[in-house]
Design a protein around this nucleic acid. Sequence first.
DNA 1: GCCTACTTGACAACCGGCTGTCAACAATGT
DNA 2: ACATTGTTGACAGCCGGTTGTCAAGTAGGC
Lengths: 160, 160
Amino acid sequence: MRHETDESLTRICLAVFRLNGALLDAGDELARPLLLTSARWQVLGALALSDTPLTAPRIAQAIGLTRQGVQKQLNALAPLGYLEKLENDDNRRSPLFWLSDAGRRAYQEMDALYRSWAAKLVLGLPVEELADAARTLEELAGRVKSWGASNTPQRGGRES
Amino acid sequence: MRHETDESLTRICLAVFRLNGALLDAGDELARPLLLTSARWQVLGALALSDTPLTAPRIAQAIGLTRQGVQKQLNALAPLGYLEKLENDDNRRSPLFWLSDAGRRAYQEMDALYRSWAAKLVLGLPVEELADAARTLEELAGRVKSWGASNTPQRGGRES
DNA sequence: GCCTACTTGACAACCGGCTGTCAACAATGT
DNA sequence: ACATTGTTGACAGCCGGTTGTCAAGTAGGC
């Protein structure tokens, strides 16, 4: 009887779509006081989690976006004073980006906001339920991503 | 110990982002042979599941998008011959949309493609695992959507 | 019958993704 | 040294969403 699992999968898909939108909205709302958006927060996060300055393409690689998309966010982030642009000896045209003090403060503030938001969100939900859901989603994401729609070779490696 | 549930939530968020992108890509790939995209498929679905013709705003309401966004897809769908535009006696400016024979065939074909894709995707995954994940996601989506980022009244109802 | 308020389609603009292209620079092989 | 290949930033354009605005049609109160 595949029918029930199909229905569950459909429910998961629909919930993922709704949740994705809701999470981005919530992230934007969380980030607004700091002049950030979900996308820019993610870029800050890549730098905050790295132990060395990164170029735009490295950041893109780290968060799974294209270098062009990340470049957009970096260009928007720079005027806010959250970034430090360092000369890159390995490639004069591609500067290294690093968090400025203000950027690091902003990221830490975002992290605190996120943590308290998350804590409120999961009130009353059993740990195992969340951990199980995380595992299932990761499994599904892996399958979908590697399979694509058919068993067709996926259009992976992007432009390079 | 809240820490572990926070981590699980973060994992869920990241998985949701990845899965959302992967599902849309897979949907586009599935729909391509029928000249459709994920977005247009969803619009066809709203009409297929309805028992009466619908106006653009009604479709938007059904699938949770703005009327303008749906209008875009309808405008794109019409030239494909998948839609029938019926005069609306209740509002001369707002035609009712209905699936043409070709549209209904296309939707049924999409449904078949989706079902076989879904069946392959969940091979080996226990039904309960998927059902549990679906429940958890629906719970989370509901919480995030109604809470927003803070306990701030959400900006629901859109433009009207 | 008229005025107001709502609904609707059309249009423009924006956002965050994507792709593609071009030119500059870097790295590598010969 | 030189040619080739790869990386990178800049830019333009597309997609699917959003918002906002405008004008036309509709509905309801008076």
